[in-house]
Design a protein around this nucleic acid. Structure first.
Lengths: 170, 170
DNA sequence: ATGATATAGTTAGGTAGCTAACTATTAAGC
DNA sequence: GCTTAATAGTTAGCTACCTAACTATATCAT
């Protein structure tokens, strides 16, 4: 993810727009600011998690497992839900298993399958991390009132809809 | 950057909030949606750039150079402005130099220093990429009107201000 | 029932980041 | 002036991600 420290000013963008007339200056500005804030949030999240010995990928796996009724899922499903490849999930699970936060359980019915279960230690880890994360997020978003949050989510949905057009090959 | 495919529903969040009462459900929801859309935008940007043989890091270096009056800067400055380590910048410049998009020029006055110059081929690469990128961004943001963009940037600034609190160690 | 196809998980090899340590050079403090 | 500290760039080794290929197992079509 782009980690832009030095966003272009409107003046710089307008200069670029002279050379590239298709540029929509306010669209570019909104886009870059969005990426920038999201990156900063992601970095802050990493910092919070690393104080608990976790990183985003592993942390998200634990959360996905906690959401399940039996605290159990499979590598493939977890990969799909976390948006990573199955290969990456293998690596994440290796790390989590090494620290006893999850356990691999073999499936007798379908011997290709594994079950991944959140261990008590894994649940305990979440019970340490989540209140810290939630508390930080609460204060971080305190300056954004409910109507601004609604408006934000609506705008994000519109941008998301526009992504189809962005990706279209001409 | 987190690549969440399976965002929690409000119901799931409320269930988590029972166990972790400090949770602010709408704050979490807004936060996750923001990260999600930003990630998707970043992936779409990668796809666009890779059609031109570029990736975000290298592309951003070219843009930073084009912004300069002489199309020239130094690795340290570029690293700072791009928000990457000097080590990473060395790697990015290696790649760009290999493809003749930038040139390393030694500085006689301060022999620790290098100048990095955007070559004609580098400028040509930008002239290929930027109109494509700008055109895609224009259609992507077409569904977000000017007032929504203003509102979005204001909210992002508020979230950014809250980041200080997020990072504070208790 | 069997050959082709699909699915589950892992392994191997690649990329782009990081930090820490290193070399070379310049600047600063007595 | 000489030692110490700061700065510029690179190198080495780490992590987390990727794709492609591989093994093993299960399913489907004829």
């Amino acid at each position: 993810m782009l980690q832009l420290r030095d966003l272009p000013s409107i003046e710089v963008l307008e200069k670029f727009a002279e050379r590239y007339p298709v540029a929509d200056v306010s669209a570019i500005s909104s886009f870059l600011h969005l990426l920038r804030v999201a990156t900063d949030l992601s970095i802050a999240l990493d910092a919070c998690l690393s104080r608990h010995g976790l990183l985003q990928g592993r942390w998200w796996v634990l959360i996905l497992l906690m959401r399940e009724i039996n605290k159990t899922s499979t590598p493939s499903l977890l990969a799909k839900k976390a948006g990573v490849s199955r290969a990456t999930m293998t690596g994440l699970l290796d790390g989590l298993e090494r620290e006893n936060l999850v356990a691999r359980v073999f499936d007798d019915a379908d011997r290709r399958r594994l079950s991944i279960r959140l261990t008590d230690a894994g649940q305990q880890k979440l019970d340490d991390v989540m209140p810290d994360y939630y508390a930080r997020l609460r204060v971080c978003m305190a300056g954004v009132d409910e109507s601004a949050r609604k408006q934000l989510e609506a705008t994000l949905m519109n941008i998301n809809a526009g992504l189809v057009a962005f990706n279209k090959v001409f």
